[in-house]
Nucleic acid binder design. Sequence first.
RNA 1: GCCCCGUUAGCUCAAUUGGUUAGAGCAUCUGACUCUUAAUCAGAGGGUUCUAGGUUCGAGUCCUAGACGGGGCACCA
Length: 500
Amino acid sequence: MPSASSTPTDQPSATAAALLQARRDKLAKLHELGIDPWGQRFDNAQPVAVVRERGEGLDQTADDGPTVRVAGRIMLLRNAGRLVFLDLVDRTGRIQIMIGKKQVGPENWPVVSCLDLSDIIGIEGRLGYSNSGEMTIFASSITFLTKSLETPPDKYHGLVDTELRQRMRYLDLIHGEGVRDRFVARSRIIESIRRVLADRGYLEVEGPTLQETAGGAAARPFNTHHNALDIPLVLRIALELHLKRLLVGGMERVFELGRVYRNEGISPRHNPEFTMLEAYEAFGDYNTMMDLTEAVLLAAAEAAGAPETFSWMGHEVSLKPPFPRRRYDDLLAEVTGCDPADPTSVAAAAARHEIETTGRHPDVIKSELFEATVEKTLSGPVFVIDYPASVCPLTKRKANDPTIAERFELYVAGMELANAYTELNDPDLQEELFRTQLDGLPEDESMARMDTDFIKALRHGMPPAGGLGIGIDRLVMFLTQASSIRDVILFPIHRPHGGG
RNA sequence: GCCCCGUUAGCUCAAUUGGUUAGAGCAUCUGACUCUUAAUCAGAGGGUUCUAGGUUCGAGUCCUAGACGGGGCACCA
């Protein structure tokens, strides 16, 4: 039985305690001065960027600049006796403040000795330039807005430790180079996607995240339980099947932009929860969705401020539409030299790449061969079209060839960014495909999970339609040049630290 | 799940082949300074070297196990 006494690691070191005490002493001093260290509403503050713009036109030698009012966090503090310089940062930028003992008067000056790095203050003062030519607000009053009790990271290096950066994202956002910009870009990208879809008459909807059956993708779900109903539930792994029910319901253009959950491995390209866009358009097909994909990507790139052509993970990428469209079998033949129409030839090529072939469905073998050989050659962007039908149980087959599914995947820089189909709307074929378990695929990894409620919906009639899925996190990675998915997710999953 | 690498002060990093009391910058405290720019100058305090074992006269350094993180493989998007 573990000891009930507190472990030594619960005790802060003397350094940590002294750093904290120093700030608590200043907190107490503020109270003594009759100042609320936790501040109040602060009206009419101008964004630093606006103030800076205003300062650009000023005569640098004049001392009659306009009065401005800003609020922000103290990032640097330079104390020169009866004169203090500090760098104040708000959401729009950074500006230098000068506080002089004579200038702010005896009622303000004692407050200055209570200022620490990371405190949040409001400043009113004249905008001008310091002797060394830096744009500066010469403070006439200081308003204390919030005391910071913890020591900030190294003011020059910031927070470098990857783990700390992710667990304490708030610090990373304050101190990390470009971190804030990347998450701003993410927000703008998502905004642009909503705009593109809304402009085309799509409605945004919200499907259930708690489901009885995890359908629409090949992935292991998270299991949970509802107490009042006393039933097991799973978290959704895709948006697809409920959006298609809405097509049946006459919502002819719908999309959902939301979180899905897959109980699988973690890597620089995988987080257990991630954000998906799925969009469905009645009376369209996969060609419709290729056009939509190009529009979404172009708008997203513009929103993120990404150049039209750039290099990412060692690939040169140009987002200029139209993106090339290449048939799956053609690519496979080009790269491997096999005959995609001949299972024996495919199996022989697969064997050369040490892919297990015995007892497995020919299309599973083909699919693995494709992933092992073709994928990494796809710098893209390129639409890979017309997949082997049996690995696509939710996709309409080609009218003249039931072995080919009308599906595309968009590859950019060797990474799969989008996946789309001409949607299967034949309820009898859908039911049959749900019942079919492909040889060599464990049930967990199959999309063939029977959803009788969905089949019933299809029997009521789902219009022919195109459907599209885009992994938003990967899109953001690509457009903000991030090499890890954890750099574009604010709070990626982490194993809890020991000790509970 | 498997393989490789990392973890030293609040933060960023040193520490020779295993050898004195584990060092430095930032941060903190004391003092000086009305134009600084990672301000500077003088002084002070601050460490369970991730954890638990082991080898050794002696371990931050070597060995074993574990924790957490990073990368790769597998799986997937």
